[in-house]
Simulated assay, not measured.
Amino acid sequence: MKRFLGHISLASLVFLFVLLVACGHDKSSTPKEDVLPEYENMQELNAQKCGMSRFNQKAYVKNKGKVYECDGSKWVESYIQTRPDSCRSCEFGEYIDVRDGKTYKTVVIGRQVWMAENLNYETENSYCYNDSLEYCDKYGRLYTWAPRYSLCPPGLHVPDTTEWLTLFSAIGESPLWWMTYAGTKLKSQKGWKDDGGGSDAYGFSALPAGSRYEDGSYHGLGEYSTFWTSREYQNIWAWVMGFKYNEDYTSCLSFAEKTTGRSVRCVQ
């Protein structure tokens, strides 16, 4: 270090000090990674030819939900995936459930206001994973199916399938559920098996809460999450929206037996 400093003039040291004070230690300044160029898909990124002139430059690919960097010849997934602010333009708020006083984080996505965490209001037919309260604190409760306005706090409701598809459209994904890459953008960054989380680019933060079977057994913590919709399917099933750790680029709209325990996200 002394040898290095010996070749730097006093004026240069003063300049470096001013630069550090002005940029490096200003908490209000925007981190470099927060202004990454963004591309819709890999085709758009690959159109930006990766050569030595772009060595170590990074870019964010939306439909992958990942950061890529140029290794001097091609674009590869960056070793560091966590962005300083995974939701740069999100509008967060709070909602107090008057029934028990719990406060929930909310987020505006498009024209919808969603809970940004799972419902954790105790009802007769709700459960904590493995019957342990610590899981309810983190993942919310697992509920058997109930009609649209019977679970959520006043002013909110269980979304129907069309409201989920509206959410997909708002984040730039196809409203056709079998073609969407919404899972990558809506999953939380951490907590998923084998680092199978998403970018959480819109602050939705879907967590892998697992589910409860009719026989009282629990499955899937860390691997998947399924959210009830208000739409019934025949008499014993209802539609659910699901996310899986090993399906980074998809979300799944299917149905489940009403007597099983699933997570609930409320929407305004």
Rank of each mutant, 00 (worst) to 15 (best):
E44C: 02
D85P: 04
Q189T: 13
Y60P: 12
V35M: 02
S263L: 02
V113I: 14
V267G: 00
Y202E: 03
D194H: 12
Y245H: 11
M179H: 07
V14F: 09
I96S: 06
E33D: 12
L133E: 14
Y79T: 15
V35D: 04
V67T: 08
E77H: 06
R262V: 06
K49I: 13
L19I: 07
D137V: 15
Q189W: 00
R212E: 02
T229R: 00
A59R: 10
S29P: 00
V107L: 05
A209P: 03
L167E: 08
Q268I: 14
Y121W: 12
T166A: 14
D34S: 15
V76R: 14
R262F: 12
L142C: 02
Y104R: 02
K187Q: 03
A47V: 12
I80E: 12
F168N: 03
E134P: 01
I236S: 11
W177Q: 07
M1V: 14
A116Q: 01
S254W: 13
F17R: 11
G101F: 12
T250L: 06
Q234I: 14
S29Q: 06
G93M: 05
R88I: 11
D248F: 13
E38H: 13
S230M: 02
R265H: 03
I8F: 07
G216D: 06
P208I: 06
E173D: 10
K32W: 09
K74I: 05
E163L: 05
P159W: 01
W239A: 08
A146W: 07
N235V: 09
G222E: 04
V107T: 01
A256T: 00
E91F: 13
T144Y: 02
W164V: 07
A22F: 15
L253E: 00
Y95D: 05
Q57R: 14
Y95Q: 10
Y68S: 07
K193L: 01
W239N: 07
Y129A: 08
Y181V: 11
W239P: 00
S126C: 02
E117R: 08
L133S: 15
L36F: 04
P84W: 08
A238C: 03
Y127G: 03
Y68A: 04
S126K: 05
E44T: 03
K138L: 09
F55E: 04
W145Y: 14
D100H: 09
P208W: 06
N46Y: 13
N56W: 11
A201I: 01
F204A: 00
S188G: 07
G220F: 04
